[in-house]
């Protein structure tokens, strides 16, 4: 019994009752909250969209219709492809990539400062001031940004008020508000893996590089970043996944004429009452983002074990 042998040290270390609780809790969480709902969605995405009462009846059959719809659009449409949905999807992925990169660029210097330069009391102060804003609900934070970025919002009023601008900038129309909101929304999920990774670097390594004549930039490029790579990939993975799946921030902050892909999914589920199609779109998003992340890990030669570390 290999599996029993594997769990034995775990039982010895934690005692029978605690170990059993952990085991049951994890298995329950994984099976009932992750696997079963996802499998149900997967199944639903291949079925015709029918009211629950007609389940098992003659109209209930398996079909690729919802996936076909994502690529080719409605059968009555004149276009060869579903340009609208594909466009929203492509834009969501590409913007998410840029949001992730911007997030990394923003967080890296701060994480480095907190981990290696700041005194312990300054570091604590900075960490607390990063965390406190996140006590506020995501939706409220988005609305707060909307107040800042609106055409008649705080920023425009100030800039026009003191005479720097004649006319307000259309931050919301150009999605500046959306990008800012998306970057800000998951900043902590980038900050903490980065901070953890950089913190574990021996300061002597940085000083040694410097002593050997390395410039600040090169010290980061050759010593700090390679060391922090697992943290960087871990942060980027989380931020990318959550950005791609964000709903509240785009709902509040995107311009009226652009859509974020999860908004589309939301529409199929709630506005058009087509759970099958919504499921199909969710599955597509899930698969594409997972493949994207795995490809990135492959390119940057990071194993999944290193990320979890």
């Amino acid at each position: 019994m290999k599996s029993l042998f594997f769990t034995q040290p775990f039982f010895q270390k934690n005692g029978k009752s605690v170990a059993l609780f952990f085991l049951v809790a994890i298995v329950f969480w994984f099976i009932f909250l992750v696997i079963i709902p996802q499998l149900y969605m997967l199944d639903l995405s291949f079925r015709a969209n029918i009211p629950p009462l007609e389940r098992g009846g003659p109209k209930d059959f398996y079909t690729l219709e919802h996936y076909r719809h994502f690529v080719f659009g409605s059968k009555t449409s004149a276009d060869a492809y579903n340009f609208v949905d594909l466009g929203v999807f492509g834009r969501t992925i590409i913007v998410s990539i840029f949001v992730t990169i911007a997030n990394l660029a923003f967080c890296y210097p701060i994480a480095f400062y907190i981990a290696k330069i700041a005194t312990p009391s300054t570091a604590r102060l900075l960490i607390v001031s990063l965390i406190i804003p996140f006590w506020i609900n995501e939706l409220l934070r988005s609305f707060a940004l909307r107040i800042l970025f609106a055409n008649e919002g705080v920023i425009n009023n100030v800039l026009t008020g003191i005479g720097i601008l004649d006319q307000g900038i259309l931050f919301i129309t150009y999605d500046v508000g959306l990008y800012t909101g998306l970057i800000y929304a998951y900043i902590l999920l980038m900050m903490f893996p980065l901070y953890n990774a950089i913190e574990s670097l021996d300061v002597n390594q940085i000083e040694a590089a410097k002593d050997l004549g390395s410039s600040t930039f090169r010290t980061h490029w050759r010593v700090v970043i390679p060391h922090a790579k697992p943290g960087i990939v871990s942060g980027c993975t989380m931020v990318f996944m959550l950005t791609v799946g964000a709903l509240a921030t785009p709902v509040v902050l995107s311009s009226p004429n652009t859509l974020w892909f999860p908004q589309l999914i939301y529409q199929w589920f709630n506005l058009n009452d087509n759970w099958s199609r919504g499921s199909a779109y969710s599955i597509i998003l899930l698969i594409v983002s997972v493949v994207f992340v795995l490809t990135m890990m492959r390119i940057f030669k990071v194993r999944i074990g290193e990320i979890i570390r």
Partner: peptide
């Protein structure tokens, strides 16, 4: 330190 004609060997070697 990167401009001085000195090299330092650290206690933990680094």
């Amino acid at each position: 330190p990167n401009k001085r004609p000195t090299s330092l060997i650290f206690q933990n070697l680094a």
